[in-house]
């Protein structure tokens, strides 16, 4: 089988506590997923500042080179990336779910897929196998569930938190790795001109509003125990009937698979 071209798109992350630049958690998972695939040529691409030290953390995962499309912070990464992907003849594009810096809307994989006309898998957890021009993948669902999907190459996939954890970044390879710069056309992102950026305000806590008109009702609301509000009670039924009733509820709720 011919070698597949896999492109992983990475960005600069920010440490959740200190805000220091680091490799982005989800993008590192995308790289890890790409490194785990057999018979592929992995190309890791970043659109941004090539001087950024945090980029070397990706090289430390065992990459020999990393392509940087040279951009400033306020430019739109989409046109440059789309053009690069078309030139690179990519079969599979892996991205993180959302960036840790900048807008972080999580729209990039969707817009790339739309622009390239490729299908998109959101929340990729695992690539089971790639055969005959189509891939069988597992998609991560909430509550630890998985869904198996089959999709034709080429496609774009954003990885989920459930994808394999990224390997540690080693210092030596990080220093030795090559950063290849590419000049691209700069397109300004209008959001930086129109929107106001401010430090995140803590969200107001939702209060339990008690719409009681009398003191007695307020007292009742303050002292009442949690109750489901008149559920069905089956007393004096045979175990078989009881089990049947439980089974019916579980089946209606769709938890019996």
């Amino acid at each position: 089988m011919a070698e597949l071209n896999v492109v992983a798109l990475v960005s600069i992350g920010a440490h959740p506590a200190s805000g220091r630049p680091r490799r982005a958690e989800q993008d590192a998972r995308a790289v890890e997923l790409g490194l785990g695939l057999k018979h592929v040529k992995l190309d890791v691409v970043h659109a941004g500042d090539p001087q950024e030290d945090a980029l070397r953390a990706y090289l430390g995962m065992g990459l020999s080179a990393l392509t940087v499309l040279e951009q400033t912070h306020e430019t739109d990464a989409l046109p440059a990336l789309a053009e690069h992907l078309q030139m690179a003849n990519a079969h599979l594009v892996l991205t993180g779910g959302q960036a840790e810096t900048g807008e972080g809307s999580g729209m990039l994989p969707y817009l790339l897929a739309e622009r390239l006309g490729w299908p998109l898998i959101a929340g990729l957890a695992e690539i089971e196998h790639i055969e005959n021009g189509s891939a069988q993948v597992l998609q991560a669902l909430p509550r630890g569930q998985r869904r198996r999907l089959k999709v034709r190459l080429p496609f774009v996939a954003s990885v989920d938190q459930a994808a394999p954890a990224p390997r540690q970044s080693a210092f030596g390879p990080a220093r030795r790795g090559m950063l290849t710069r590419e000049e691209v056309e700069l397109v300004d992102d209008p959001l930086y001109a129109t929107a106001q950026w401010q430090p995140a305000r803590p969200r107001p806590k939702r209060l339990k509003v008690i719409k009681a008109k009398t003191g007695a009702e307020r007292m009742k609301a303050a002292t009442a125990k949690a109750s489901g509000g008149g559920g069905q009670v089956l007393a004096g039924v045979s175990p078989r009937d009881g089990a049947e009733a439980i089974f019916k509820l579980l089946h209606d709720e769709g938890v019996i698979r």
């Binding site: 992350g13 920010a14 959740p16 805000g19 960036a99 840790e100 810096t101 900048g102 807008e103 972080g104 959001l191 129109t194 929107a195 106001q196 950026w197 401010q198 430090p199 995140a200 305000r201």
Partner: peptide, 15 residues
């Protein structure tokens, strides 16, 4: 409209 940006350290306000 106020929405969280990035990893939740910033808010974006926009029309």
């Amino acid at each position: 409209t106020l929405g969280r940006a990035g990893a939740g350290r910033e808010d974006i306000g926009q029309a």
